[in-house]
Design a protein around this nucleic acid. Structure first.
Lengths: 272, 272
DNA sequence: GCCGTCGTTCCGTAAACCGGAACGCGCTGT
DNA sequence: ACAGCGCGTTCCGGTTTACGGAACGACGGC
């Protein structure tokens, strides 16, 4: 259920000293303190100290320092939670990809065309991170918005990106497959076949492989690199299975491929 | 032009030692390093060291530690930029306000009703921070998306929030007014009058007071606290002046007031 | 009203960090 | 092509700084 999962995640749990290779122990533990808040919304000094195996006083000082820096905020009862300054930094990080701004108009039009939820995803490690999401108005059922990060192997976005990036595909195969639903593809051979099909067709699907009842279709956003188009992100539409993989599938596929192609062209044009 | 501005912002610029009252010097400087990236997208160790008045080696270690923590990322040329992990943390921080999820459906419907850009803003210090924004499809002119944070005094969102929060109003008056356009209200007496009118009407406007050509209308999202409704956020619609303060103004006002009232009710209902 | 828990503070010790200088690399301008 | 410059990185010693344990004050539950 945790959202941040991929990187080190050195929750030794025990009392053993961190075998961190990097200097700046204080900063490393400060980051570890931040990581604690990925799983729990509100934490106090005692819980943080127990979770990281550090002294309570140390945890208290860390929390206070992060709070004066704005990365954490104090809740009424003396505990702490993630601060809104992190939101600002995060928006800056995404804005500087010079991707969201270019993709937003196409995403809005695709949303109106299909009347479904549209996502803009990039790869971080072997996960897919959705940096923007726009929803059609008045949907009876809404996609669970806490899914900001998926393993790449089970998402359509991850497949279009891996199909055009052998290094990513190798990393995904290396990391292995996790079964989330009965439909999740976990056979490496079958996965390779899916990537081949994706390369042929120019789009990818995921049929209830991550969240039961929900499927998605994705198309790659590419940039020319060394004369060849290289995928840098993907647009995807996520909805109840019957609405994207049923009779509407041709329209969905055409819509998302056109939108992704348009974003790719705009991106190329923006590289002045 | 800086986005993060409100808190300490101890860019002494010079070489003077930080007169930081807080312990955990390493963590404080680490946060200061992060702050450097609020103004510039890509920085190297030398620039960071010069900006903070610290040794180059120190800056290099800070950057490396923050990068291994994922808060920064390395660019090809050895420099650094804000990392996408900050985006994840920021999304978590906002999601835990238990506000965005509740507001999203109403924002989508209001967007379709008015075919304009809808914003969800909260207060941080004496600034307004927009934690969600959704745009209508195929607009000929788009609001500049880098505005994630405004001074509260010149925005309609800040006015509806200050109108219901005397402490915030006092803080805004205390901080003083900055003139951004010829229309910016900078007279404290006039500002107090605006707040009174806002209290009467239940909505606020800003006519090109921050960005020339762009105006906005806002209505408060409230939560019952101690038997009285207390504003915790605001919905606003921002568009070229003629589209929100011209003949459409009654429709815009009615739409945003209804949407904000609905979010308030949903918020109350969600507090199980 | 008592006890348990939590966040905070104080203090001595020692470990960790700062700063300066040196190294290797890529780029530029001759 | 070569040399000079600027950059990021590494190494090392001195000393500042943060860690850990224990004590304190406050809040809440039983």
């Amino acid at each position: 259920m945790t959202v941040l999962s991929l990187p080190p995640l050195d929750l030794d749990g025990g009392v053993g000293p961190h075998d961190d290779d990097s200097p700046l122990r204080s900063v490393s533990t400060a980051v570890a303190v931040l990581d604690c808040f990925a799983e729990e919304a509100e934490l106090g000094a005692t819980r943080v100290a127990a979770r990281l195996g550090i002294a309570k006083s140390t945890a208290c000082r860390m929390l206070a320092a992060l709070a004066t820096g704005g990365l954490l905020e104090r809740t009424g009862s003396g505990r702490y939670r993630l601060g809104l300054r992190l939101f600002e930094y995060g928006q800056l990080a995404v804005d500087r990809l010079m991707l969201r701004d270019v993709a937003l108009p196409a995403m809005g039009e695709l949303r109106e065309l299909l009347r479904e939820t549209i996502q803009l995803g990039v790869v971080v490690g072997t996960d897919v991170l959705y940096v923007e999401r726009t929803e059609a108005a008045s949907m009876n059922v809404r996609f669970r918005s806490e899914h900001r990060r998926n393993p790449a192997h089970s998402s359509s976005t991850g497949r279009v990106l891996a199909a055009g990036d052998p290094a990513l595909a190798a990393a995904i195969l290396e990391r292995g497959f996790v079964r989330y639903t009965p439909f999740t593809v976990v056979d490496p051979q079958r996965y390779r076949q899916i990537l081949a099909t994706t390369r042929e067709q120019g789009y990818a699907t995921s049929r209830e492989e991550f969240e039961p009842g929900w499927s998605s279709v994705a198309a790659p956003i590419t940039m020319m690199r060394g004369g060849r188009p290289h995928p840098v992100a993907a647009l995807s539409v996520v909805a109840p299975t019957s609405r994207v993989l049923g009779p509407r599938k041709p329209a969905v596929v055409q819509g998302i491929r056109r939108a992704a192609a348009r974003v790719s062209a705009d991106l190329e044009r923006a590289r002045s």
